[in-house]
Amino acid sequence: MKLTLKVWRQQNSQDKGGFETYQVSDVSTDMSFLEVFDVLNERLINEGKDPIAFDHDCREGICGACSMYINGRAHGPWHETTTCQLHMRAYNDGDTIVVEPWRAKAFPVIKDLAVDRSAFDRIIQAGGFISVNTGNAVDANAIPIDKVDADAAFAAAACIGCGACVAACKNSSAMLFTSAKVSQLALLPQGRPEHQQRAEDMVAQMDKEGFGSCTNTGACEAECPKGISISNIARLNREFIGAGFSSKA
């Protein structure tokens, strides 16, 4: 296949940036989306040009590093698929593909398609933990946990922190991410002791980072590669309301 790529190029966070158009030929339908960028970058390097910066690590859909906003869709057109797992059979010969970085004030562009997602780390640091002594692993069955709750906590824990929810949301809201991190702990007995403080601290940090507020459009859920449900946002809202009434601090 022959494809036209219109890619956002930006030297650094200060640079204004703009689109560059590249023609790539001999694209195989078996290639992943990132492999097309590898091929293109190799060519740019051989031509003595600056390769396109983009984030990637595992390339198997589990790390959350890859992040591209492709033709108006976070991680491209496939449902519950990260950019690294998107394959070129999704496209036809002659297609034009527009690739942009995640756009949010809280995710400043570092270079080209790579953005700084450390705001997510700070939200987790604000409360996404439980305070226990580490050391010997405790017996997995020491605390009985309802299977339904365990499954729901596990589903929330599937969040890979990729930021597609923020990228897809018209308000750049981080509610889906934050709600997943609050839920995975709030649903388990180990997470209960600090659950109210956690909800308050993580929401406060989320606001401080400059993410927008949720208007329940559901775009995050539609684009999340891990299928995180907005029922987690409802749980975060319940946790937060409960904390408002009776948190200790």
Partner: peptide, 23 residues
């Protein structure tokens, strides 16, 4: 506040593919 949370807009938008028009 929500508008300022995205200072640079996307060139291509998803329309109704990911959220309802009403919302």
């Amino acid at each position: 506040r929500n508008r300022t949370a995205r200072p640079v807009k996307y060139a291509v938008r998803p329309g109704n593919k990911t959220s309802s028009w009403f919302s």
